[in-house]
Computed example of a mutant assay.
Amino acid sequence: MNPLILGLLIVVVVAAVAGGTAVLQQRFSPPQNREGYNEVAGSVFEIVSVLYAIVLAFVLIAVWEQMQDAQAMTYEESGALVDVYWAAQDLPDENRQAVEALCLEYANWVIEEEWPAMATQRDTGLDGWEMIDEMRGQFNQAIDVTDQTSLGLSQDAEETIAVLSQSRTDRLNTAQSGLSAVMWLVLIAGALLMFGILLLFGVPGRLAHVIVVVIAAAMVALLLFSVYELEYPFARGVAVEADAFRLALERMSHVR
């Protein structure tokens, strides 16, 4: 389902539940019976709401930055792959063709196999690593230890493959890096605490109290939904796409 539609549905449902709870509370506990709690509830709500806002803002910023970093990682990795393809142009024909084929196979493998696996948070296997190791092996095989130019080419290729390998490691680690269960407990429990404190207020206008509760519940639900969608950069509704590797395939097709 489209994340915008899903988010809207969740916010509407949470707001409806919160509003319904406030209406039921007013029926069995009129506002005038709770007016004596307003001063204490206000002090407690101020403390809880500020602390919760700080935690929620920190988490939301963290997952957003992780999403941005994840997208940058894909372009760094795909860029390194293209650099390896370019470096292969100076190799003997047999090694060059082998590296070119490996680079194309790697890009297609990432798009067709690893991206769906990351979207469902499954293990991506070792195939990608084996392709990188084979690329390294082809460059090493083509080295002429008596030729300084060949040694320089090998060193440059090794550095480029190292960047490719590190970027791949970062991408796979990020794909599995979500919030801990403890952090989700803090976020959900904090939201429930805020909602509970809001129900303690004895607001003279019943409609005004319902509106306040509904707005607060909807806002917190919206922010929590945003955290949920951004938690895993390569999964869920706003996941990073494999555009970087599609671009790499296009770039490699124009080399030479």
Rank of each mutant, 00 (worst) to 15 (best):
Thr120Met: 07
Gln121Lys: 15
Gln121Phe: 07
Gln121His: 10
Gln121Pro: 01
Gln121Leu: 15
Gln121Thr: 08
Arg122Ala: 13
Arg122Asn: 11
Arg122Gly: 08
Arg122Cys: 03
Asp123Met: 04
Asp123Gln: 07
Thr124His: 02
Thr124Leu: 09
Thr124Glu: 09
Thr124Phe: 11
Gly125Thr: 08
Leu126Asp: 09
Asp127Tyr: 08
Gly128Thr: 04
Gly128Leu: 15
Gly128Met: 14
Trp129His: 14
Trp129Gly: 08
Glu130Cys: 04
Glu130Asn: 11
Glu130Ser: 11
Glu130Phe: 07
Glu130Leu: 12
Glu130Pro: 03
Met131Leu: 07
Met131Gly: 02
Ile132Met: 11
Ile132Cys: 02
Ile132His: 01
Ile132Tyr: 02
Asp133Met: 11
Asp133His: 09
Glu134Gln: 05
Met135Gln: 02
Arg136Trp: 04
Arg136Tyr: 08
Gly137Thr: 01
Gln138Cys: 06
Gln138Phe: 06
Gln138Lys: 05
Gln138Val: 00
Phe139Ile: 02
Phe139Thr: 02
Phe139Pro: 00
Phe139Leu: 05
Phe139Trp: 03
Asn140Arg: 11
Asn140Thr: 13
Gln141Thr: 13
Gln141Glu: 14
Gln141His: 13
Gln141Asp: 11
Ala142Met: 07
Ala142Lys: 09
Ala142Trp: 04
Ile143Pro: 03
Ile143Cys: 12
Ile143Lys: 14
Asp144Thr: 07
Asp144His: 02
Val145Glu: 15
Val145Met: 13
Val145His: 13
Thr146Val: 03
Thr146Lys: 12
Asp147Met: 12
Asp147Cys: 03
Gln148Gly: 01
Gln148Trp: 03
Gln148Ile: 06
Gln148Asp: 08
Gln148Phe: 10
Thr149Asn: 12
Thr149His: 12
Thr149Val: 15
Ser150Pro: 05
Leu151Thr: 02
Leu151Tyr: 02
Gly152Trp: 06
Gly152Gln: 11
Gly152Asp: 12
Leu153Met: 14
Leu153Gly: 02
Leu153Arg: 12
Leu153Ala: 12
Ser154Phe: 13
Ser154Gly: 13
Ser154Arg: 08
Gln155Tyr: 11
Gln155Phe: 14
Gln155Thr: 08
Asp156Cys: 00
Asp156Lys: 15
Ala157Val: 00
Ala157Arg: 01
Ala157Gln: 01
